[in-house]
Design a protein around this nucleic acid. Structure first.
Lengths: 250, 250
DNA sequence: TAGATTGTTAATCGATTAACAATC
DNA sequence: TAGATTGTTAATCGATTAACAATC
Protein backbone atom coordinates (compact mmCIF):
# COMPACT_ATOMS: atom_id res chain seq x y z
CA UNK A 1 0.00 0.00 0.00
CA UNK A 2 2.73 2.38 0.94
CA UNK A 3 4.31 4.06 -2.08
CA UNK A 4 7.95 4.87 -2.69
CA UNK A 5 7.23 8.64 -2.72
CA UNK A 6 9.23 9.31 0.44
CA UNK A 7 11.41 6.81 2.30
CA UNK A 8 10.09 6.39 5.89
CA UNK A 9 11.86 3.94 8.27
CA UNK A 10 11.33 0.85 6.19
CA UNK A 11 12.62 0.74 2.61
CA UNK A 12 10.49 -2.29 1.82
CA UNK A 13 11.81 -4.45 -1.00
CA UNK A 14 14.84 -2.93 -2.59
CA UNK A 15 14.50 -4.53 -6.05
CA UNK A 16 17.14 -7.21 -5.47
CA UNK A 17 20.56 -5.79 -4.70
CA UNK A 18 22.41 -5.72 -1.35
CA UNK A 19 24.45 -8.88 -1.14
CA UNK A 20 22.85 -10.72 -4.03
CA UNK A 21 24.41 -11.56 -7.33
CA UNK A 22 22.84 -9.39 -9.97
CA UNK A 23 24.44 -10.16 -13.29
CA UNK A 24 27.32 -12.48 -12.67
CA UNK A 25 29.23 -10.21 -10.35
CA UNK A 26 28.63 -10.02 -6.62
CA UNK A 27 27.18 -6.69 -5.55
CA UNK A 28 29.28 -6.76 -2.37
CA UNK A 29 32.78 -7.99 -1.53
CA UNK A 30 33.19 -11.75 -1.73
CA UNK A 31 33.89 -12.26 1.98
CA UNK A 32 30.53 -10.83 2.92
CA UNK A 33 28.77 -12.74 0.15
CA UNK A 34 30.20 -15.97 1.55
CA UNK A 35 29.33 -15.18 5.14
CA UNK A 36 25.65 -14.84 4.31
CA UNK A 37 23.35 -16.60 6.70
CA UNK A 38 23.36 -20.22 5.64
CA UNK A 39 22.31 -21.96 8.78
CA UNK A 40 22.60 -25.70 8.59
CA UNK A 41 18.85 -26.10 9.18
CA UNK A 42 18.04 -24.57 5.81
CA UNK A 43 20.55 -26.72 3.96
CA UNK A 44 19.22 -29.90 5.56
CA UNK A 45 15.74 -29.32 4.21
CA UNK A 46 16.80 -28.79 0.62
CA UNK A 47 17.04 -32.48 -0.35
CA UNK A 48 13.42 -33.09 0.58
CA UNK A 49 12.29 -30.23 -1.65
CA UNK A 50 14.48 -31.61 -4.40
CA UNK A 51 12.94 -35.04 -4.09
CA UNK A 52 9.43 -33.66 -4.50
CA UNK A 53 10.44 -31.30 -7.29
CA UNK A 54 11.77 -34.22 -9.31
CA UNK A 55 8.43 -35.99 -8.97
CA UNK A 56 6.64 -32.84 -10.11
CA UNK A 57 9.05 -32.48 -13.02
CA UNK A 58 8.37 -36.07 -14.07
CA UNK A 59 4.66 -35.28 -13.96
CA UNK A 60 5.22 -32.35 -16.28
CA UNK A 61 4.41 -29.60 -13.73
CA UNK A 62 6.02 -26.37 -14.83
CA UNK A 63 5.50 -24.25 -11.72
CA UNK A 64 5.13 -24.91 -8.01
CA UNK A 65 4.38 -22.50 -5.18
CA UNK A 66 6.23 -22.41 -1.88
CA UNK A 67 2.85 -22.94 -0.25
CA UNK A 68 2.49 -26.33 -1.92
CA UNK A 69 6.01 -27.43 -1.04
CA UNK A 70 5.31 -26.40 2.54
CA UNK A 71 2.06 -28.30 2.89
CA UNK A 72 3.55 -31.52 1.53
CA UNK A 73 6.40 -31.35 4.03
CA UNK A 74 4.25 -30.01 6.88
CA UNK A 75 6.27 -26.84 7.14
CA UNK A 76 5.32 -23.19 7.39
CA UNK A 77 5.36 -21.51 3.96
CA UNK A 78 7.74 -18.83 5.21
CA UNK A 79 10.30 -21.51 6.04
CA UNK A 80 10.20 -22.76 2.47
CA UNK A 81 10.52 -19.25 1.08
CA UNK A 82 13.58 -18.61 3.26
CA UNK A 83 15.14 -21.96 2.45
CA UNK A 84 14.73 -21.45 -1.27
CA UNK A 85 16.10 -17.93 -1.01
CA UNK A 86 19.54 -19.23 0.02
CA UNK A 87 19.90 -20.95 -3.35
CA UNK A 88 19.60 -17.55 -4.97
CA UNK A 89 16.42 -18.33 -6.87
CA UNK A 90 13.44 -15.98 -7.13
CA UNK A 91 9.82 -16.81 -7.77
CA UNK A 92 6.94 -14.84 -9.18
CA UNK A 93 4.04 -13.77 -6.95
CA UNK A 94 0.79 -15.66 -7.63
CA UNK A 95 2.65 -18.19 -9.75
CA UNK A 96 5.45 -19.65 -7.70
CA UNK A 97 8.76 -21.07 -8.84
CA UNK A 98 9.69 -22.71 -12.10
CA UNK A 99 10.27 -26.37 -11.24
CA UNK A 100 13.24 -26.94 -13.52
CA UNK A 101 14.93 -23.76 -12.46
CA UNK A 102 14.46 -24.67 -8.80
CA UNK A 103 15.89 -28.16 -9.27
CA UNK A 104 18.94 -26.71 -10.97
CA UNK A 105 19.41 -24.06 -8.31
CA UNK A 106 19.25 -26.55 -5.43
CA UNK A 107 21.55 -29.02 -7.19
CA UNK A 108 24.02 -26.28 -7.94
CA UNK A 109 23.90 -24.95 -4.39
CA UNK A 110 24.61 -28.39 -2.93
CA UNK A 111 27.18 -29.31 -5.54
CA UNK A 112 24.94 -32.12 -6.76
CA UNK A 113 24.85 -30.92 -10.35
CA UNK A 114 27.65 -33.31 -11.21
CA UNK A 115 28.08 -36.79 -9.82
CA UNK A 116 30.72 -36.75 -7.06
CA UNK A 117 32.92 -39.80 -6.82
CA UNK A 118 33.69 -41.12 -3.35
CA UNK A 119 35.70 -43.87 -1.70
CA UNK A 120 34.49 -45.92 1.23
CA UNK A 121 36.86 -46.93 4.01
CA UNK A 122 35.89 -49.80 6.30
CA UNK A 123 34.01 -52.72 4.79
CA UNK A 124 32.29 -53.96 7.95
CA UNK A 125 28.57 -54.47 8.24
CA UNK A 126 27.69 -50.80 7.91
CA UNK A 127 30.21 -50.24 5.12
CA UNK A 128 28.87 -53.22 3.21
CA UNK A 129 25.39 -51.90 3.81
CA UNK A 130 26.18 -48.49 2.34
CA UNK A 131 28.01 -50.01 -0.62
CA UNK A 132 24.84 -51.90 -1.44
CA UNK A 133 22.57 -48.91 -1.13
CA UNK A 134 22.10 -47.32 -4.51
CA UNK A 135 19.94 -44.44 -3.30
CA UNK A 136 22.86 -42.03 -2.97
CA UNK A 137 23.01 -41.64 -6.72
CA UNK A 138 19.99 -39.35 -6.42
CA UNK A 139 22.15 -37.13 -4.29
CA UNK A 140 25.07 -36.85 -6.63
CA UNK A 141 27.18 -39.42 -4.79
CA UNK A 142 28.83 -42.42 -6.39
CA UNK A 143 30.94 -44.73 -4.29
CA UNK A 144 33.57 -46.03 -6.69
CA UNK A 145 35.94 -47.96 -4.47
CA UNK A 146 36.22 -49.65 -1.09
CA UNK A 147 39.20 -50.00 1.22
CA UNK A 148 39.89 -51.98 4.38
CA UNK A 149 42.83 -52.70 6.66
CA UNK A 150 41.91 -56.34 7.21
CA UNK A 151 43.99 -58.61 4.91
CA UNK A 152 41.23 -61.21 4.99
CA UNK A 153 38.84 -58.80 3.30
CA UNK A 154 41.22 -57.45 0.67
CA UNK A 155 40.53 -58.75 -2.82
CA UNK A 156 36.94 -59.71 -2.10
CA UNK A 157 34.17 -58.17 -4.14
CA UNK A 158 31.40 -56.38 -2.30
CA UNK A 159 28.46 -55.04 -4.27
CA UNK A 160 30.58 -54.49 -7.35
CA UNK A 161 33.59 -52.99 -5.57
CA UNK A 162 36.83 -54.88 -5.09
CA UNK A 163 38.12 -54.31 -1.58
CA UNK A 164 41.58 -52.75 -1.72
CA UNK A 165 44.26 -52.37 0.93
CA UNK A 166 44.81 -49.08 2.73
CA UNK A 167 48.17 -48.79 0.94
CA UNK A 168 46.34 -48.36 -2.31
CA UNK A 169 44.13 -45.54 -1.03
CA UNK A 170 46.44 -42.59 -1.68
CA UNK A 171 47.23 -43.65 -5.25
CA UNK A 172 43.60 -44.30 -6.07
CA UNK A 173 42.43 -40.99 -4.65
CA UNK A 174 45.11 -39.08 -6.51
CA UNK A 175 44.55 -40.78 -9.85
CA UNK A 176 40.77 -40.45 -9.63
CA UNK A 177 40.83 -36.94 -8.16
CA UNK A 178 38.48 -38.17 -5.46
CA UNK A 179 37.47 -35.52 -2.95
CA UNK A 180 34.94 -37.33 -0.78
CA UNK A 181 35.28 -40.28 1.56
CA UNK A 182 32.81 -42.35 3.55
CA UNK A 183 34.25 -43.55 6.86
CA UNK A 184 32.73 -46.75 8.24
CA UNK A 185 35.53 -48.32 10.27
CA UNK A 186 35.16 -49.36 13.93
CA UNK A 187 35.52 -46.58 16.51
CA UNK A 188 39.07 -47.57 17.51
CA UNK A 189 40.31 -47.24 13.94
CA UNK A 190 38.52 -44.00 13.11
CA UNK A 191 41.21 -41.48 13.89
CA UNK A 192 43.97 -43.29 12.01
CA UNK A 193 41.80 -44.08 9.00
CA UNK A 194 40.68 -40.45 8.80
CA UNK A 195 44.30 -39.28 8.87
CA UNK A 196 45.16 -41.63 6.01
CA UNK A 197 42.21 -40.32 4.03
CA UNK A 198 43.29 -36.74 4.58
CA UNK A 199 46.89 -37.53 3.61
CA UNK A 200 45.55 -39.17 0.49
CA UNK A 201 43.88 -35.92 -0.49
CA UNK A 202 40.29 -36.45 0.64
CA UNK A 203 38.68 -33.08 1.43
CA UNK A 204 35.31 -34.17 2.80
CA UNK A 205 34.67 -37.04 5.21
CA UNK A 206 31.23 -38.48 5.81
CA UNK A 207 31.92 -39.95 9.22
CA UNK A 208 29.70 -42.84 10.33
CA UNK A 209 31.86 -43.68 13.36
CA UNK A 210 30.92 -42.52 16.85
CA UNK A 211 34.20 -40.60 17.06
CA UNK A 212 34.31 -36.82 16.75
CA UNK A 213 37.13 -36.21 14.29
CA UNK A 214 39.65 -33.41 14.50
CA UNK A 215 40.42 -32.23 10.98
CA UNK A 216 42.44 -29.34 9.54
CA UNK A 217 40.44 -26.44 8.15
CA UNK A 218 41.20 -27.58 4.62
CA UNK A 219 38.93 -30.56 5.24
CA UNK A 220 35.29 -30.83 6.26
CA UNK A 221 33.96 -33.70 8.34
CA UNK A 222 30.29 -34.48 8.76
CA UNK A 223 29.27 -36.86 11.51
CA UNK A 224 26.34 -39.11 10.76
CA UNK A 225 24.98 -40.92 13.75
CA UNK A 226 21.98 -43.18 13.43
CA UNK A 227 21.98 -43.53 17.21
CA UNK A 228 20.86 -39.90 17.51
CA UNK A 229 17.59 -40.46 15.71
CA UNK A 230 17.08 -43.78 17.43
CA UNK A 231 17.60 -42.12 20.81
CA UNK A 232 14.93 -39.54 20.07
CA UNK A 233 12.54 -42.23 18.84
CA UNK A 234 13.20 -44.55 21.79
CA UNK A 235 12.74 -41.77 24.30
CA UNK A 236 9.50 -40.58 22.74
CA UNK A 237 8.19 -44.14 22.44
CA UNK A 238 9.15 -44.93 26.02
CA UNK A 239 7.37 -41.80 27.13
CA UNK A 240 4.30 -42.48 24.98
CA UNK A 241 3.93 -46.02 26.23
CA UNK A 242 4.24 -44.85 29.83
CA UNK A 243 1.51 -42.26 29.31
CA UNK A 244 -0.78 -44.21 27.02
CA UNK A 245 -0.41 -47.70 28.40
CA UNK A 246 -1.96 -47.38 31.85
CA UNK A 247 -5.49 -45.99 31.51
CA UNK A 248 -7.49 -46.02 28.26
CA UNK A 249 -7.52 -42.23 28.26
CA UNK A 250 -11.08 -41.48 27.20
CA UNK B 1 29.59 -17.30 49.28
CA UNK B 2 26.20 -15.92 50.02
CA UNK B 3 24.54 -17.62 52.99
CA UNK B 4 20.91 -18.58 53.41
CA UNK B 5 20.43 -16.08 56.25
CA UNK B 6 18.05 -13.87 54.31
CA UNK B 7 16.61 -14.66 50.88
CA UNK B 8 17.49 -11.80 48.47
CA UNK B 9 16.36 -12.07 44.80
CA UNK B 10 18.22 -15.25 44.05
CA UNK B 11 17.50 -18.41 46.07
CA UNK B 12 20.59 -20.14 44.73
CA UNK B 13 20.38 -23.91 44.83
CA UNK B 14 17.26 -25.11 46.56
CA UNK B 15 18.55 -28.50 47.75
CA UNK B 16 16.84 -30.49 44.99
CA UNK B 17 13.05 -30.12 45.05
CA UNK B 18 10.86 -28.17 42.61
CA UNK B 19 9.88 -30.51 39.85
CA UNK B 20 12.37 -33.27 40.60
CA UNK B 21 11.64 -36.70 41.97
CA UNK B 22 12.77 -36.80 45.56
CA UNK B 23 12.01 -40.19 46.98
CA UNK B 24 9.98 -42.09 44.47
CA UNK B 25 7.11 -39.67 44.29
CA UNK B 26 7.08 -36.65 42.03
CA UNK B 27 7.19 -33.41 43.98
CA UNK B 28 4.80 -31.78 41.52
CA UNK B 29 1.78 -32.99 39.53
CA UNK B 30 2.58 -35.53 36.85
CA UNK B 31 1.58 -33.34 33.90
CA UNK B 32 4.16 -30.74 34.85
CA UNK B 33 6.77 -33.38 35.55
CA UNK B 34 6.27 -34.75 32.08
CA UNK B 35 6.38 -31.39 30.37
CA UNK B 36 9.85 -30.68 31.73
CA UNK B 37 12.26 -29.24 29.17
CA UNK B 38 13.54 -32.19 27.20
CA UNK B 39 14.61 -30.54 24.00
CA UNK B 40 15.53 -33.01 21.32
CA UNK B 41 19.09 -31.65 21.16
CA UNK B 42 19.86 -32.99 24.63
CA UNK B 43 18.44 -36.43 23.88
CA UNK B 44 20.44 -36.72 20.67
CA UNK B 45 23.72 -36.29 22.48
CA UNK B 46 23.09 -38.98 25.09
CA UNK B 47 24.13 -41.96 22.92
CA UNK B 48 27.59 -40.51 22.39
CA UNK B 49 28.10 -40.13 26.13
CA UNK B 50 26.86 -43.67 26.60
CA UNK B 51 29.33 -45.01 24.08
CA UNK B 52 32.26 -43.39 25.87
CA UNK B 53 30.99 -44.37 29.31
CA UNK B 54 30.94 -48.02 28.26
CA UNK B 55 34.56 -47.78 27.22
CA UNK B 56 35.45 -46.20 30.56
CA UNK B 57 33.50 -48.90 32.39
CA UNK B 58 35.38 -51.59 30.51
CA UNK B 59 38.61 -49.88 31.56
CA UNK B 60 37.50 -50.03 35.19
CA UNK B 61 37.06 -46.27 35.64
CA UNK B 62 34.69 -45.65 38.53
CA UNK B 63 34.09 -41.92 38.15
CA UNK B 64 34.10 -39.45 35.29
CA UNK B 65 33.63 -35.70 35.32
CA UNK B 66 31.41 -33.77 32.95
CA UNK B 67 34.52 -31.82 31.99
CA UNK B 68 36.14 -34.96 30.63
CA UNK B 69 33.04 -36.05 28.73
CA UNK B 70 32.87 -32.56 27.26
CA UNK B 71 36.46 -32.43 26.08
CA UNK B 72 36.25 -35.81 24.36
CA UNK B 73 33.17 -34.73 22.43
CA UNK B 74 34.36 -31.17 21.88
CA UNK B 75 31.44 -29.72 23.77
CA UNK B 76 31.17 -27.06 26.45
CA UNK B 77 31.11 -28.61 29.93
CA UNK B 78 27.86 -26.84 30.75
CA UNK B 79 26.16 -28.59 27.85
CA UNK B 80 27.16 -31.96 29.27
CA UNK B 81 25.96 -31.01 32.75
CA UNK B 82 22.58 -29.95 31.35
CA UNK B 83 22.27 -33.04 29.17
CA UNK B 84 23.03 -35.37 32.05
CA UNK B 85 20.61 -33.50 34.29
CA UNK B 86 17.65 -34.57 32.15
CA UNK B 87 18.31 -38.20 33.01
CA UNK B 88 17.77 -37.28 36.67
CA UNK B 89 21.28 -38.16 37.77
CA UNK B 90 23.37 -36.02 40.11
CA UNK B 91 27.12 -35.88 40.45
CA UNK B 92 29.43 -34.87 43.23
CA UNK B 93 31.50 -31.69 42.99
CA UNK B 94 35.22 -32.27 42.52
CA UNK B 95 34.58 -35.96 41.77
CA UNK B 96 32.10 -36.18 38.95
CA UNK B 97 29.61 -38.90 38.13
CA UNK B 98 29.72 -42.60 38.95
CA UNK B 99 30.18 -44.30 35.58
CA UNK B 100 27.90 -47.26 36.22
CA UNK B 101 25.16 -45.09 37.63
CA UNK B 102 25.37 -42.78 34.63
CA UNK B 103 25.17 -45.65 32.15
CA UNK B 104 22.10 -46.99 33.90
CA UNK B 105 20.45 -43.58 34.06
CA UNK B 106 20.95 -42.90 30.36
CA UNK B 107 19.81 -46.37 29.34
CA UNK B 108 16.74 -46.06 31.49
CA UNK B 109 15.95 -42.60 30.18
CA UNK B 110 16.13 -43.79 26.57
CA UNK B 111 14.39 -47.08 27.22
CA UNK B 112 17.54 -48.94 26.26
CA UNK B 113 17.77 -50.86 29.51
CA UNK B 114 16.00 -53.79 27.89
CA UNK B 115 16.47 -54.96 24.33
CA UNK B 116 13.57 -53.71 22.18
CA UNK B 117 12.40 -56.01 19.42
CA UNK B 118 11.58 -54.46 16.07
CA UNK B 119 10.31 -55.47 12.67
CA UNK B 120 11.65 -54.14 9.39
CA UNK B 121 9.33 -53.40 6.49
CA UNK B 122 10.80 -53.10 3.01
CA UNK B 123 13.70 -55.37 2.07
CA UNK B 124 15.23 -53.23 -0.67
CA UNK B 125 18.85 -52.16 -0.70
CA UNK B 126 18.60 -49.97 2.39
CA UNK B 127 16.45 -52.51 4.27
CA UNK B 128 18.91 -55.27 3.49
CA UNK B 129 21.68 -52.96 4.60
CA UNK B 130 20.10 -52.28 7.97
CA UNK B 131 19.27 -55.96 8.51
CA UNK B 132 22.95 -56.72 8.08
CA UNK B 133 24.13 -54.01 10.44
CA UNK B 134 24.58 -55.42 13.89
CA UNK B 135 25.54 -52.15 15.56
CA UNK B 136 21.99 -51.39 16.71
CA UNK B 137 22.29 -53.98 19.44
CA UNK B 138 24.37 -51.47 21.38
CA UNK B 139 21.35 -49.23 21.32
CA UNK B 140 18.84 -51.70 22.65
CA UNK B 141 17.40 -52.50 19.23
CA UNK B 142 17.01 -55.99 17.80
CA UNK B 143 15.42 -56.45 14.39
CA UNK B 144 13.70 -59.81 14.61
CA UNK B 145 11.73 -60.04 11.38
CA UNK B 146 11.51 -58.62 7.88
CA UNK B 147 8.49 -58.03 5.66
CA UNK B 148 8.00 -57.07 2.04
CA UNK B 149 5.14 -56.69 -0.40
CA UNK B 150 7.06 -58.16 -3.33
CA UNK B 151 6.12 -61.86 -3.83
CA UNK B 152 9.52 -62.49 -5.42
CA UNK B 153 11.25 -61.58 -2.17
CA UNK B 154 8.98 -63.48 0.20
CA UNK B 155 10.53 -66.63 1.60
CA UNK B 156 14.10 -65.56 0.95
CA UNK B 157 16.52 -65.32 3.85
CA UNK B 158 18.29 -62.01 4.37
CA UNK B 159 20.93 -61.77 7.08
CA UNK B 160 19.21 -64.39 9.20
CA UNK B 161 15.66 -63.12 8.72
CA UNK B 162 13.13 -64.88 6.52
CA UNK B 163 11.24 -62.31 4.46
CA UNK B 164 7.52 -62.57 5.21
CA UNK B 165 4.50 -61.20 3.36
CA UNK B 166 2.73 -58.08 4.58
CA UNK B 167 -0.29 -60.26 5.46
CA UNK B 168 1.77 -61.87 8.18
CA UNK B 169 2.79 -58.57 9.75
CA UNK B 170 -0.19 -58.03 12.05
CA UNK B 171 -0.10 -61.55 13.48
CA UNK B 172 3.63 -61.44 14.05
CA UNK B 173 3.52 -58.05 15.75
CA UNK B 174 0.66 -59.12 18.01
CA UNK B 175 2.19 -62.44 19.01
CA UNK B 176 5.62 -60.93 19.64
CA UNK B 177 4.27 -57.76 21.28
CA UNK B 178 6.48 -55.75 18.95
CA UNK B 179 6.25 -52.00 19.41
CA UNK B 180 8.87 -50.69 17.03
CA UNK B 181 9.11 -50.80 13.26
CA UNK B 182 11.79 -49.78 10.78
CA UNK B 183 10.33 -48.47 7.52
CA UNK B 184 12.57 -48.87 4.45
CA UNK B 185 10.12 -49.16 1.55
CA UNK B 186 10.27 -46.94 -1.56
CA UNK B 187 8.71 -43.48 -1.22
CA UNK B 188 5.54 -44.41 -3.13
CA UNK B 189 4.77 -47.26 -0.73
CA UNK B 190 5.57 -45.41 2.49
CA UNK B 191 2.14 -44.14 3.46
CA UNK B 192 0.38 -47.47 2.94
CA UNK B 193 3.09 -49.52 4.64
CA UNK B 194 3.05 -47.17 7.63
CA UNK B 195 -0.73 -47.54 7.91
CA UNK B 196 -0.39 -51.32 7.92
CA UNK B 197 2.26 -51.11 10.62
CA UNK B 198 0.06 -48.91 12.77
CA UNK B 199 -2.95 -51.20 12.28
CA UNK B 200 -0.73 -54.10 13.29
CA UNK B 201 -0.02 -52.40 16.60
CA UNK B 202 3.36 -50.76 15.98
CA UNK B 203 3.72 -47.67 18.20
CA UNK B 204 7.02 -46.26 16.99
CA UNK B 205 8.16 -45.96 13.37
CA UNK B 206 11.76 -45.31 12.40
CA UNK B 207 11.09 -43.85 9.00
CA UNK B 208 13.90 -44.06 6.43
CA UNK B 209 11.71 -42.98 3.52
CA UNK B 210 11.74 -39.41 2.25
CA UNK B 211 8.01 -39.13 3.07
CA UNK B 212 6.78 -37.14 6.05
CA UNK B 213 4.28 -39.48 7.70
CA UNK B 214 1.02 -38.43 9.28
CA UNK B 215 0.46 -40.60 12.35
CA UNK B 216 -2.14 -40.58 15.15
CA UNK B 217 -0.95 -39.29 18.51
CA UNK B 218 -0.79 -42.83 19.86
CA UNK B 219 2.16 -43.42 17.56
CA UNK B 220 5.51 -41.69 17.21
CA UNK B 221 7.35 -41.45 13.92
CA UNK B 222 10.98 -40.46 13.58
CA UNK B 223 12.28 -39.51 10.17
CA UNK B 224 15.83 -40.50 9.41
CA UNK B 225 17.27 -38.93 6.32
CA UNK B 226 20.83 -39.60 5.26
CA UNK B 227 20.38 -37.00 2.54
CA UNK B 228 20.28 -34.28 5.20
CA UNK B 229 23.78 -34.93 6.43
CA UNK B 230 25.04 -35.47 2.91
CA UNK B 231 23.54 -32.14 1.87
CA UNK B 232 25.37 -30.32 4.65
CA UNK B 233 28.63 -32.09 3.81
CA UNK B 234 28.29 -31.50 0.06
CA UNK B 235 27.50 -27.85 0.54
CA UNK B 236 30.40 -27.29 2.90
CA UNK B 237 32.79 -29.22 0.65
CA UNK B 238 31.61 -27.33 -2.43
CA UNK B 239 32.16 -24.09 -0.56
CA UNK B 240 35.54 -25.16 0.79
CA UNK B 241 36.83 -26.20 -2.61
CA UNK B 242 35.66 -22.92 -4.11
CA UNK B 243 37.49 -20.94 -1.45
CA UNK B 244 40.58 -23.12 -1.07
CA UNK B 245 41.09 -24.32 -4.62
CA UNK B 246 41.94 -21.12 -6.46
CA UNK B 247 44.90 -19.45 -4.75
CA UNK B 248 47.30 -21.26 -2.42
CA UNK B 249 46.16 -19.09 0.49
CA UNK B 250 49.44 -18.36 2.20
C1' DT C 1 -9.07 -5.24 -10.46
C1' DA C 2 -8.74 -8.57 -6.45
C1' DG C 3 -6.35 -11.74 -4.13
C1' DA C 4 -2.81 -15.27 -3.70
C1' DT C 5 1.96 -15.45 -3.26
C1' DT C 6 6.62 -13.55 -2.85
C1' DG C 7 10.44 -11.40 -0.21
C1' DT C 8 11.74 -9.19 3.93
C1' DT C 9 11.82 -7.11 8.52
C1' DA C 10 10.57 -7.55 13.41
C1' DA C 11 9.08 -10.57 17.26
C1' DT C 12 9.18 -14.91 19.46
C1' DC C 13 10.95 -19.10 20.80
C1' DG C 14 14.42 -22.52 22.03
C1' DA C 15 19.14 -23.83 22.55
C1' DT C 16 23.77 -22.46 23.75
C1' DT C 17 26.91 -19.91 26.45
C1' DA C 18 28.36 -16.98 30.42
C1' DA C 19 28.43 -16.32 35.16
C1' DC C 20 28.46 -17.78 39.75
C1' DA C 21 27.10 -19.71 44.36
C1' DA C 22 27.24 -24.29 46.54
C1' DT C 23 29.78 -28.23 47.35
C1' DC C 24 33.15 -31.79 48.39
C1' DT D 1 41.65 -25.19 53.54
C1' DA D 2 41.85 -24.34 48.39
C1' DG D 3 40.28 -25.25 44.20
C1' DA D 4 37.95 -28.08 40.74
C1' DT D 5 33.44 -29.33 39.63
C1' DT D 6 28.44 -29.33 40.09
C1' DG D 7 23.80 -27.27 39.40
C1' DT D 8 21.30 -23.26 38.14
C1' DT D 9 19.97 -18.64 36.63
C1' DA D 10 20.61 -14.88 33.30
C1' DA D 11 22.39 -13.36 28.76
C1' DT D 12 23.30 -14.37 24.09
C1' DC D 13 22.74 -16.42 19.84
C1' DG D 14 20.33 -18.59 16.03
C1' DA D 15 16.21 -20.42 14.06
C1' DT D 16 11.25 -20.14 13.62
C1' DT D 17 7.16 -17.57 13.31
C1' DA D 18 4.32 -13.32 12.67
C1' DA D 19 3.35 -9.44 10.03
C1' DC D 20 3.10 -6.92 5.93
C1' DA D 21 4.29 -4.23 1.67
C1' DA D 22 5.24 -5.39 -3.20
C1' DT D 23 3.91 -7.91 -6.98
C1' DC D 24 1.70 -10.33 -10.79
Amino acid sequence: MREKTDPPKKSSRPPSAAGRKVGGLPAVPVEIEIERKTGTSCVKRLPSYLQLLRVLQAEGQEYVSGTVLASVHHLEPVIVRKDLAITGITGTPRVGFRVTELINAIERFLGWDNQTKAVLVGVGSLGTALLGYRGFENYGLLIVAAFDADPKKIGKWVHGCKVQSMNQLAGFVRRGEIRLGVLTVPAEAARQAADLMIQAGIRGIWNFTPVKLQVPDTVVAQKEDLAEGLAVLSHRLHHLLAVRALPPIK
